[in-house]
Design a protein around this nucleic acid. Structure first.
Lengths: 145, 145
DNA sequence: TTAGTTGCAAATATTTTGCAACCGC
DNA sequence: GCGGTTGCAAAATATTTGCAACTAA
């Protein structure tokens, strides 16, 4: 099983190339996103504070913004509330969120190929990595009408 | 050209059937959503205050919630910020939002049929009326790479 | 050294809630 | 009149910003 975490060289280089600095906070926050899978800024904060309690919320917001600009993380809206961040390791995927059980399903982007084709016909190029589809999973669809 | 606004009888009945009351605020807010097309709670507030300046933000939030419960309006996330509400008159549609020019394109739900089929194969039933796809329109795709 | 970063506090922005007055039915 | 609604103020959330101290390079 391959190690899916970002290779150190990757993001360190990515930061420097844009004139950004490599700080322990940034390293911690990127790791937290990697490990948490899908996490809101608040959840990321809680996680990194377990290691360095002085890390501040504003640092998390600013860092997530930088990491997203570098393409190391992405965010999607998995609830009507806060955005959730996820690492860009692995394949591009979009999300299905079940309103019944709250379950989040990651689906490989290629599954949306037919949809991408339709949108392409409308002259639109979708950003699948940001896409979230709300609805109901099979289990919940059967349960509550 | 048909009148797409909600027929008075429609929503008045809808309200009463659930034990809700028909108030001028609710009528104004529903009209505002109808007329604005896509609007945030804030925009709806500004609009209705042009008619009745005493209407309060909390009334707008509470009313939009009621109207959505009744199926008279729906909301989608057309920006990373506030939700935007639209009337459910006309056909069910989803939205395309261009990150380049900010343009919002409404697309009839049937265009997503192939996508719905794929998701169905995964046991998932999407709520297309809530779906928003971010990306780039043809014009902007050509412009900035 | 020096310009990018961080922590902290305060400012914004958004949405929610308690409650007394109000009003649709 | 009863009970759902509203306006208002305050509270709860969420995110952003100014700035002095700090630090990676």
């Amino acid at each position: 099983m391959p190690d899916h975490r970002h290779e150190p060289a990757d993001w360190r280089t990515a930061l420097r190339e844009k004139g950004y600095r490599l700080t322990p906070q940034r390293e911690l926050i990127l790791s937290a996103v990697d490990e948490l899978g899908h996490a809101t800024p608040d959840e990321v904060l809680a996680r990194v504070q377990q290691t360095v309690s002085t890390i501040n919320a504003s640092t998390v917001y600013r860092t997530l913004e930088v990491l997203e600009e570098l393409g190391l993380v992405r965010h999607a809206h998995l609830s009507d509330r806060a955005p959730t961040y996820h690492s860009t390791r692995g394949h591009v995927h979009f999300h299905l969120v079940c309103r019944g059980c709250g379950d989040v399903i990651s689906v490989d982007a290629e599954k949306a190929e037919p949809f991408v084709a339709v949108l392409g016909g409308l002259g639109f190029t979708p950003d699948l990595g940001h896409l979230t589809v709300f609805g109901r999973c099979a289990r919940c669809e059967g349960a509550h009408p």
